[in-house]
């Protein structure tokens, strides 16, 4: 990487780390059509891992004594199912599988944050070098949930589902009538509409920003911890002190991050269930 040539500058290092592997969509121009290919690919990887485990186990599922993997997955499924049953009182077959998928996918995507922050970009840069490209331009961010595009995409899907569940449970007329009549009654129709719009807009925003903020901050802190020994040489005594510091800080933050990634996945799932159950209930 950069450190092999010249002592890298801290700002450059951080900037390099926070730069996505971006590809312009063919035949387009402008920022909007710039695809963060790393987020897409790692999310796809998470999807494949999730599908591989769950489909494999569900296809081999036995009603007898389950194996350890089946047992673990059964526990996750029954946990999510319990959450849904407790929170969601409407009728919908999509909620429990949706919640399970959200929980597992967000967890798997968050989990990429646990992998040493330099490992995959380093391998990626080396790959570039071997392929004869400039490693300086080998950008890679491995945590899809630390990319706001991913979280907004998920939150928008949830937003659309909220509207769908609302219409399904109340009918088109009832659904739109509620925009103007709840919570203050028909006399305050404009106020009701304003409140409703704010409420609906805030949900996907809070959902996506919470997850993105947590994961982005986590990744940034990993990068900042890594900066402690940035470009260090073993000839200096300070390297050992800073290295010890980096190890301790990295250890503590990684261990703490185990909780954060699980908690964030759980919160994303729970809020989705809560929003959907609110959409299904009459005001």
């Amino acid at each position: 990487m950069a450190s092999e040539h010249a002592p890298p500058n801290m700002t450059e290092y951080i900037k390099h780390h926070l730069h996505h592997w971006q590809v312009q969509m063919p035949g387009t121009e402008g920022q909007f059509f710039l695809v963060n290919l790393d987020s897409v690919l790692f999310k796809l990887l998470a999807v494949l891992v999730f599908l591989w485990f769950f489909l494999r186990v569900s296809r081999r599922a036995t009603s007898g004594v389950p194996g350890k993997l089946q047992c673990a997955i059964e526990m996750v499924v029954s946990f999510v199912d319990g959450m849904v049953r407790e929170t969601f009182h409407g009728r919908s077959k999509i909620i429990a599988p949706l919640s399970l998928t959200i929980f597992c996918l967000v967890f798997l995507m968050n989990f990429m944050d646990m992998i040493p922050v330099d490992l995959l970009p380093w391998a990626w840069a080396n790959g570039h070098q071997i392929a004869g490209h400039d490693p300086e331009h080998a950008f890679l961010r491995v945590v899809p949930t630390a990319d706001i595009n991913t979280t907004i995409g998920m939150a928008l899907t949830v937003f659309l589902l909220i509207q769908y569940v609302g219409i399904k449970h109340k009918g088109v007329v009832g659904f739109f009538k509620e925009w103007f009549t709840a919570p203050f009654g028909p006399a305050f129709a404009p106020a009701n509409l304003l409140l409703r719009v704010i409420e609906e807009a805030v949900r996907p925003l809070s959902l996506s920003l919470r997850l993105f903020g947590n994961m982005y901050a986590g990744e940034l802190i990993f990068i900042l911890i890594a900066v402690l020994t940035l470009g260090a040489s073993l000839d200096h005594f300070s390297t050992y002190l800073l290295g010890a510091g980096q190890f301790i800080a990295g250890f503590v933050w990684t261990a703490f991050h185990v909780l954060i990634i699980t908690l964030q996945a759980f919160i994303f799932m729970t809020l989705t269930i809560v929003y959907l159950s609110m959409a299904a209930e009459h005001h």
Binding site: S3, P116, V117, L119, W122, A226, T229, F247, F251, V258
Partner: peptide
């Protein structure tokens, strides 16, 4: 191809957490 010391320490911290979890 040789990883720098930063990455090595990150790896050590990672395996320390793996050990902790295990």
């Amino acid at each position: 191809m040789i990883p720098n010391i930063t990455l090595v320490i990150q790896g050590l911290a990672f395996f320390a957490v793996v050990w902790l979890v295990m």
